[in-house]
Amino acid sequence: MNTATPTTGLRLADVTLTYPDGASRLTALDRASLSVPAGTMTAVVGPSGSGKSSLLAVAATLVTPDSGRVTIAGTDTGGLSRADLTALRRTRIGLVFQQPSLLPSLTACEQLQVMAHLDGRGARKERARALDMLDAVGLADQAGRRPHQLSGGQRQRVNIARALMNDPAVLLVDEPTSALDHEHGAAVIGLITTLTRERSTATVLVTHDRSLLGAADAVTEVRDGRLGAPSRGGPSGAVPDVSG
């Protein structure tokens, strides 16, 4: 039996983030700490304005916190230059937004190849990889279709495949089922869960949908910028009350 400790893909330690608010400052995150091992998914829940979006922005290194540390796959991001942070985001962080924001003129395969192009990799080899990724999300037969030819669930699957194109260590997912019905939403979450395991990503899922929390390994609630202690996810885990 393997008793090795899972590698931590994402770690936030005592992160505080404030924004100007007139003559004072608004605290978006208040000494927030979060640890997500590789190959697991943590769901983050909480009411609107509680700090969920700020948490994702800091974890994605899009916003620099006032204090605290953000570590991605063992790399402390605090001392990195802007160019190094851009490279880290491109190669080690995958982002899945509420709306797929696919480029209307590109096919599903080309949407993924853009990621390889931005990283300076050869087009022919990366077309093969893009096709493999589309196959992994069940869209091998849709590779030549453009966004308007795909359903909402299919567009979100392309979005997920694009986020995973560069084998990120961390996958950050923001309300991926908000525009989908229950059946398609459940299928998307099932896909994210499977890919998290298979590709050993440290996945953070922000959601308002309580029915999705059973898929997570851990669930943590954020209120007024403060993260609560994580509870165990899965069907038998305690699920926080996130109403209000």
Rank of each mutant, 00 (worst) to 15 (best):
M1Q: 12
M1T: 08
N2A: 12
T5P: 03
T7L: 07
L12Y: 03
A13W: 09
A13L: 13
T18E: 08
T18I: 03
P20H: 00
G22R: 12
A23Q: 10
L26C: 04
L29H: 02
A32R: 01
A32E: 05
S35G: 09
P37S: 01
A38K: 14
T40K: 05
S48Y: 11
G51R: 03
S53G: 06
L56G: 13
A59I: 05
A60H: 09
V63S: 02
V63C: 02
R69V: 13
V70R: 13
A73T: 02
D76I: 01
D76V: 06
G79D: 10
R82M: 10
D84H: 11
D84Q: 12
A87M: 08
I93A: 00
V96S: 01
V96K: 04
V96L: 02
P100G: 01
L103W: 07
L103E: 04
L106H: 15
T107P: 05
E110I: 12
M115I: 13
H117S: 14
R124E: 12
K125I: 14
K125V: 15
E126H: 14
R127L: 11
R127N: 07
A128N: 03
R129L: 09
R129V: 10
A130L: 06
L131R: 13
D135L: 04
A136G: 05
A136H: 07
G138C: 06
G138W: 00
L139M: 11
L139S: 06
A140V: 08
A143Q: 11
A143V: 14
P147C: 06
H148C: 14
L150S: 04
L150Q: 07
G152C: 09
G152D: 08
R155T: 04
Q156K: 03
A161T: 05
R162T: 02
N166W: 01
P168K: 00
P168T: 08
P168G: 04
D174P: 10
H184T: 15
G185H: 08
A187F: 10
V188H: 02
L191I: 00
T193K: 15
T194R: 15
T194D: 15
R197L: 13
E198C: 04
R199K: 15
T201W: 00
A202I: 13
T203Q: 10
D209F: 10
S211A: 08
G214M: 09
A215F: 13
A215I: 04
A216E: 13
D217W: 09
D217Y: 08
V222D: 03
R223N: 08
D224L: 15
R226V: 15
R226Q: 15
S231K: 09
R232N: 05
S236L: 11
S243E: 14
G244H: 10
G244C: 03
